[in-house]
Design a protein around this nucleic acid. Structure first.
Lengths: 140, 140
DNA sequence: CTAGATGCAAACGATTTGCATTGGC
DNA sequence: GCCAATGCAAATCGTTTGCATCTAG
């Protein structure tokens, strides 16, 4: 289904349908939350492997097409995910663990940003950070 | 006042009170939302200038002391701000402009993350991203 | 005087760019 | 065959590390 969508989107823009594009999209789908480097290694398990540069360029393209999105969990590399799995990322800045929360917790925030600032929040791109339950317990 | 606090915090930990530390803290205070590089240049307008390495090390220290905090507006460098100006950062991923919103819009989200996941959200570290009003108008 | 702070240069990880080659259409 | 897509190497950006020197206490 994403596949059909990819081909359609590429054709619609006069871009070429290549195996690199399909393979990167599959990896994002499979790995769920993944950095460019993880995708590079995952794709590279097949042969021939893709160049890391191509992974970066393809991720940018897939994002422009609206098929994937990314968020920043912290200082490091961004993580990519399919646009269709829309959820909120929550990361602990002590132990780096990530939990996914339902994006509905932001419904009111989205509405008030829209109302007060005309700003349209992209929920899939939001990461909340703070301290998780076990780190709060441990740091005492 | 932040100054008194800095000296006190350093003394309390047996660390040294140096001009580099005071100058970096002043720059963060003055510049409001600033990257390590911007701080480096701002501090460097005086002489003698500080080394960029010292800026990084000092920012880490000031953050550990709880005097400053940082958030990630996007792909690039983090931005630092005084802990006392607690507000929510909102950035447009098209034009990169940043607006500050009152952190109270997150009150309910913070409460529900606490209740449902025992997770304590750090509001000063949160950045919402999306599309600002003028970019929405422009992209049509 | 001595440990902690700073400067300097080099290393590092993530990403981008320029340019030559390849491959969809 | 042509232009988009890819590979490759080098450049770039932000940040960290190792080590020598300096300075607050």
């Amino acid at each position: 289904m994403t596949d059909v969508s990819l081909t359609a989107q590429l054709r619609a823009r006069g871009l070429r349908v290549t195996s690199a594009r399909a393979r990167v999209l599959e990896s994002v789908q499979r790995l769920e939350h993944c950095t460019p480097d993880q995708i590079y290694h995952h794709v590279g398990q097949d042969s021939p492997s893709l160049n890391i540069t191509t992974v970066y360029r393809t991720l940018d393209l897939l994002e422009e097409l609206g098929l994937i999105g990314h968020t920043h969990l912290g200082h490091g590399a961004p993580v990519y995910h399919l646009s269709e799995d829309q959820h909120l990322h929550v990361v602990c800045h002590r132990c780096e663990s990530v939990i996914s929360a339902d994006s509905s917790v932001l419904t009111d925030v989205v509405a008030s940003m829209e109302r007060e600032h005309g700003f349209r929040v992209d929920v899939g791109h939001v990461t909340l950070s703070g301290e998780c339950a076990s780190c709060q317990a441990g740091s005492r």
